[in-house]
Simulated scan of single mutants.
Amino acid sequence: MNTSEIKIIKLKGNPRTRGEILGKQLKRLIKKHLNIIKLLIFEYYQTNPIEIINDFFKNTKILESAIKLTPHLIEEVEGVAEGSGNDFKEIFATQCIDELIWYKFEKNTRFSNQCSALGILKDKDFPSIIAQNVDHINIFRDYGLILHIFDHKTSLESFIYSLSGLIALTGINNRAIAVCTNGLSLELNYSIEGLPVSFIVREILAQETYNDAIEVIQNIKQASGQNYLIGSLDNIISFECSGNSIVQYPRDKRVNRIYHTNHALVNKDLLNSSLNIAHVMEENKSLERFNFLEKHLNDSSVIITFKKLRDILSSHEGFICRHPDETPEGSSTIASVIYLLSKSPEMYVSEGMPCSNEYKKFTFL
């Protein structure tokens, strides 16, 4: 799929209605996406995927946490299940790919996230910007889409980049609040009582102010190791989150920029795992990507124009723009997003690898 073909789904009404719209419009793709999840589980465990999913619900309280903390999002997922004609628990499980990493895929680095994110605080010439290359398993290519969500009680709107049937990967709202993520599930601790990453992203984007968005991170129990880069008109901030700890990763105030890949930098709540983290970092090129971003962002004399930013995200140096043939674990850059956080916020999306696909602009009316 190229950028011009990306699907845009408008979701209006109450949460259940929005979910039903999504489920009905993407019924075929959601079924295929769900079958991919089941296939991955079967390939790894040679076990009936339904047994693994039922085991996940039996041995965690993630669903209970979502019901308690975000009942509106549970209603939306119920709507997706109903609209697409699938079992609710199976659709909920697709929202929990980060959680399945530590629950059942903990020794399989194929399932590790490999996203690269960066933020640039505003100056006199440019607004604040945060951006991300979304790296995922190759099999999820061509499932990307944009959700344009309208809150049924307020004037809040959001653009969310996601996959078929998934409620969020990354996004921006019309209050100029945006969030990018980096998976840290193979290194940081988890909680069986936390809220899934996709739900936290949606909660951040449901906020009207930067301070309210920060409170979501600080006050909600996290299910998975994850870095959240949050931007607004006047601020950019990054938090490394784990099941037991939330630690701010400070931006370099000399240049007012920040960048993150897929290894923990400040959070010490490490997973008790037999995984060789150095080997994981070598496979997902996290350190190389971090060093590349540092090289291009830590010089305050270099102005980061929009073109310069696109060049950084499209670069093959440092493995920022990842191609399927470069990654033995079978992952690649499935999309790239740039959020301009002005009073009229803008979202730019390149579906597929940004080195070979143009960015498409999305604005709120």
Rank of each mutant, 00 (worst) to 15 (best):
E157C: 14
Y359T: 07
N262F: 11
Y259L: 06
S315Y: 11
T209V: 13
L229W: 10
N54V: 03
F42W: 07
N182F: 13
A93D: 06
N174F: 12
E288D: 10
F126T: 05
I36V: 08
I167Q: 15
D269S: 03
A117G: 05
Y249S: 09
K285S: 13
G352K: 06
I192Y: 15
L341D: 05
Q218I: 06
S332Y: 00
F150S: 12
I177S: 12
G13S: 15
D87S: 15
R257G: 11
I246R: 01
S232K: 09
E294H: 06
K122Q: 05
K104A: 09
I91N: 08
Q218N: 03
E203F: 05
G165Q: 11
N113G: 05
N189G: 07
N14E: 14
S315H: 08
Q25L: 12
E317F: 03
N272Q: 06
R16L: 15
L341G: 05
V179W: 14
F126D: 12
K122Y: 01
P250G: 01
L271Q: 00
F88D: 13
K285Q: 14
D87Y: 10
I304K: 12
S315T: 11
V266H: 02
S162Y: 09
S344K: 04
N54C: 09
Y348G: 04
I146C: 03
H263C: 11
Q207L: 11
D55G: 06
F239D: 06
E76L: 14
K285P: 09
E5H: 08
D269Y: 01
N86S: 10
L297V: 01
A223D: 09
K10P: 13
